[in-house]
Design a protein around this nucleic acid. Structure first.
Lengths: 119, 119, 119, 119
DNA sequence: GTGGTCTAGACCACG
DNA sequence: GTGGTCTAGACCACG
């Protein structure tokens, strides 16, 4: 899986990587149990510091998306906990996006099509 | 319209206010041509620095949501430009939200229901 | 409140600080809404790097014990969320401690007295 | 006695095994003088490196919980030394757990009930 | 002035 | 070899 960093983005690098890995797991590009690159390998590949990648992995681990052990590196978790609900933050963020889209004249159907595409 | 600041949020205050005004315009709570409170009044009401509100208004003006003149203060624009498309940032953000919701076991229909609710 | 670091401990420095702050909040030494030292001040006082203190504050923030904002620094939260239950990790850890104490010949009453003292 | 490894835990494997054996001795599941599986057998059963189990046994021996000899392998010690006191580390750890439980709204009686259960 | 992010480098425990 | 921790230093956005 290829990680792309937008260096001009307001989103911190460690968060950009985190988001792309989460989307990769959801889309199936990263499968349950699949090995992630080592902290050093990913840092080298992207051209950033190992600390930054390390921060990403620790975040993903805390969120329950991946597991890390010192022997095998990081792997996608087999059993990701399912709360069944959308977080309040994501709900608010979704509302903001829908509002902006509506004001831009984007039809509701267009948004639902994106849901179908991304889900 | 009542603006609520979440002091525990990572979202900067000026952005929280901006988002709530945009959502207010989209929902119709703030109507086209409607007068917004002065920078001073809003800052006093929320209990924050006037510089912060000023930053919000400047942003909303740049984005084309409001217009300001020295005599009348700030007002919701009558004719907000409609690009007809969702910004790339919002598209990426929507994809992230959908991915997280999916991994949390939230059904697709639930997301579409929220679109209906927020649109 | 005085933070003491045991440099020979296996517990990472950022975690030692975190634990002492949590215990300080529980004991009432740190009151709700009380200001914590700035990242830089605490780092200087303890003689460690600001990054390490920063890691502590971010952890405490994620756990809901404190709040940080760029203007005012860090403060103890007024309303700490109460799950009402002991985490599985803490339960396991408590069991380990009780087992070791029992094998050392420490009477059960002694442990309960410590609960009274620490609660 | 069945040893279970939590691969998602931050606690090192050798320590997880060590803790479970100590708890097994305390609970009586492992009796004084009882034979422990060989390093090789236990490593095979859990599916880990023999070095890891070896590290565990060495630790338990140093702590005085088990004894080893070349002929009979490892056995639970008949006369485990009783200091009569809780170690400083365990006391600090207990205080941390009690503090977190208290802040989570867990009543003191609940903690004492767990002491009764685990002792 | 404040916390947040990032770098370049180092050392460590685990396995 | 792996992730985890820590340092010394820097720059940034927020307010």
């Amino acid at each position: 899986m290829i990680i792309r960093i937008d260096e001009y983005s307001d989103v911190p690098i460690y968060m950009q990587i985190r988001n792309q890995i989460v989307m990769g797991i959801s889309s199936g590009e990263l499968k349950a149990g699949e090995q992630l690159p080592t902290v050093r390998a990913l840092a080298l590949e992207i051209g950033i510091n190992t600390m930054t990648v390390s921060k990403t992995y620790q975040m993903l681990k805390n969120e329950g998306y991946i597991m890390t052990d010192r022997k095998n590196g990081a792997r996608v978790r087999e059993n990701i906990a399912q709360s069944g609900v959308i977080s309040e933050d994501n709900k608010t963020e979704l509302r903001r996006i829908v509002s902006e889209a509506r004001l831009s004249g984007v039809p509701k159907a267009e948004l639902k099509k994106l849901i179908d595409e991304f889900y």
